[in-house]
Simulated assay, not measured.
Amino acid sequence: MSWELLLWLLALCALLLLLVQLVRFVRADGDLTLLWAEWQGRRPEWELTDMVVWVTGASSGIGEELVYQLSKLGVSLVLSARRVHELERVKRRCLENGNLKEKDILVLPLDLTDTSSHEEVTKAVLQEFGRIDILVNNGGRSQRSLVVNTSLDVFKELIELNYLGTVSLTKCVLPHMIERKQGKIVVVNSISGIVSVPVSSGYCASKHALRGFFHSLRTELVDYPGITVSTICPGPVQSDIVKNAFSEEVTKTVENNFDQSYKMATSRCVRLMLISMANDLKEVWIADQPFLLMAYLWQYMPTLAWWLTNKVGKKRITNFKSGMDTDSSYSTMWKKKHD
C-alpha cells in the first residue's frame, strides 16, 4: 500500500469520524463528557449507595424526581423545602416505591431565604444521621418578566433565594465535610447560568453568580481532593418551575398551563445528574437541542453566540408578550425537524 493511499484512507476515516460525532451531537441531550461517562463511567448504583443525601427543593420538579431515584439506591434522605405537606407526600411515595424504611428519611422544612436557621437545620441532620455525604442545592425559583417592568424587589428575592440561600447552606455544611475530608456538593444551576436570555434577567443573574461562586470554591478546596463540587446545568425540563416563576412583582407568579411536551423528561435529566454525581464531574450541561448547542457556542464561540442570541431573543420576547411559552415555538420546530 502506497503512502499516498494510506493518507487518503486516514483522511477518509477522520471525515467519517467527524460526521459520526456531528450526528451524535445533533441528537445529544448532554455534553460529550457526560455522555461518555454514561457509556463508560461509574454507575450510580455502585457509587452512591449507603450515603446520606440532603436535597433542597425536594417537594417538586427535579428535586422530587431526584429523591425518587435516590430512594432506589439504598441511601438515607433528608428532604427539604418550605411546603411540609408536599414533603410528606414525597416521603410516602419513597417508602412505597423505593428501598427505604421510615428511619431512612428525614423531612426537614427549610426556607432558603431564612439564613439564620441554616446552622440549626444542619445540626438537625447531623444529629439524625451523624454525617452528610452529599448536599444537593436544588431549591430556587425562576422569573418571567421584562427588566423595564420588573420591581427591584423581584431581583432582590431571586438573589436572596437562588444565590445567597444556597451559599449560606453550603457554608454551614462545608466545615463538616472539611473535618471528614470528604463529601459531594452538588449545585443545580441552569443553562441560563451560561447563556443569558431575555425575559429572565434576574434568574440568569442569580445563576451566573452561583456558577462563579462554586467554581471559586472548587479551587479553594484543592487541598481536599475528597470533597467534590459539581455544577449541574439543565435546560428546559418538565416541571413547575415556570408556573411558580416570579413575574413583575414579588406577589405575582406566572399563571399558565403551557404544554411541556417539548421539554426534557424529568426522569432523564435526573438520571444524567446521578451519573455526573457518581463520576464527580465538575460541570455538566443537560439539555436537548437547540439549548445544548447554544451552551457550546457561548463557551467556545461567544461572538457567534451573541448574534444568535439576539435573533432568538426577539422571538422569545414576542412569545412572552403574546402570552405564549417563551421557548416553545422554536424548540418544537427543532424537535419535529430532527425526530
Rank of each mutant, 00 (worst) to 15 (best):
N189M: 00
N189G: 01
I191L: 14
S192W: 02
S192Q: 12
G193D: 04
V195L: 07
S196N: 12
P198L: 05
V199P: 10
V199Q: 08
V199W: 09
Y203I: 00
K207Y: 04
K207L: 02
H208K: 06
A209L: 07
G212S: 13
F214K: 02
H215A: 11
S216N: 11
S216P: 04
S216A: 15
T219Q: 14
T219S: 12
E220I: 01
L221C: 01
L221P: 01
D223H: 05
Y224M: 03
P225W: 09
G226Q: 10
I227V: 10
T228W: 12
V229C: 10
V229G: 09
C233T: 00
G235E: 02
G235Y: 04
P236D: 03
V237G: 03
V237R: 06
S239I: 04
I241Q: 03
I241K: 01
I241Y: 04
N244M: 13
F246W: 13
S247P: 02
E248V: 10
E249C: 09
V250H: 02
T251L: 11
T251D: 12
T251G: 00
N256Q: 15
F258W: 15
Q260A: 06
S261D: 14
K263A: 15
S267G: 08
S267T: 14
R268E: 15
R268S: 14
C269G: 05
V270T: 09
V270W: 05
R271K: 15
M273W: 03
L274Y: 12
M277A: 04
A278G: 07
D280R: 15
L281K: 06
E283R: 08
E283M: 13
W285H: 11
A287K: 07
Q289Y: 03
P290F: 11
